[in-house]
């Protein structure tokens, strides 16, 4: 179960790509329980997830840039400084940050094959995520009541789109976490359980780092 031998850990330098070779016999490895070996020795699923997250960087980059371009363009409606509730948002940011910790604990539990702990930490992570989403719904409602609709001005359209996209990502994450918990309970999962937990963890942490940026650029730096 060791990931890297100590020697390999020291080798930090870039290995030429064509040296990342190849030996797997795709067809006789059906006994290992680890899926079959790949040309690079890396898991297909993790590679796909990292690629997806690399792609997501450009998605959120575009939404953040749109917001940055339009943040000060307020022709009507309240200004952000009048409606932002920094203490409230700070608390929900903290909640999301801590959910990353509980996600790490879920992953380590899964790697130890400790199903009870895994389920517990998955549930707590999902609850923290749901708290964050609930906070966002509350915040949006408050802003709306104070006169900041989706269509009010450029700031509001780009603000709601950016934070709303993030909120949808968190919601999808919560659904995945709860589903995974249920699937583990029912023992219905079809792959390597620890890896599935890790993959969803990667997605979850990514959603967290996007919020780290949003919290600073949108809330803490006044428009």
């Amino acid at each position: 179960m060791t990931h890297r031998c100590p020697v390999a850990k020291k080798r930090k330098s870039w290995r030429p790509l064509d040296d990342v070779a190849v030996l797997a016999n795709h067809d006789t490895g059906h006994d290992t329980g680890h899926g079959h070996s790949t040309s690079t020795g890396l898991s297909n699923n993790k590679m796909a997830m990292w690629l997806f997250l690399g792609s997501e960087c450009l998605l959120f980059g575009g939404l953040i840039s749109t917001y940055m371009l339009y943040r000060g363009r307020i022709t009507q409606g309240p200004r952000p400084s009048q409606i932002f509730d920094i203490p409230f948002t700070s608390v929900s940011s903290f909640v999301l940050l801590m959910s990353s910790l509980t996600m790490v604990l879920a992953v380590t539990s899964a790697q130890r094959k400790d199903n009870e702990r895994t389920k517990l930490w998955l549930t707590i992570t999902a609850l923290l995520g749901a708290t964050f989403v609930g906070g966002q719904v509350y915040e949006f409602t408050a802003f709306y009541n104070e006169g900041l609709g989706f269509t009010t001005n450029l700031f509001s359209s780009s603000f709601y789109t950016l934070t709303g996209f993030h909120g949808v990502h968190v919601t999808v994450g919560v659904i995945m976490l709860l589903s995974l918990r249920g699937i583990i309970s029912a023992n219905k999962d079809t792959g390597d359980r620890a890896e599935v937990v890790e993959l969803i963890g990667l997605y979850w942490h990514f959603v967290d780092i996007v919020w780290i940026i949003i919290f600073t650029l949108v809330y803490l730096i006044p428009a």
């Binding site: 064509d18 990342v20 190849v22 795709h26 040309s39 297909n44």
Partner: peptide, 12 residues
Amino acid sequence: LNMRAPGMTLMK
């Protein structure tokens, strides 16, 4: 990246 036949390095 992952499904190449044995011996097929990227430069082959």
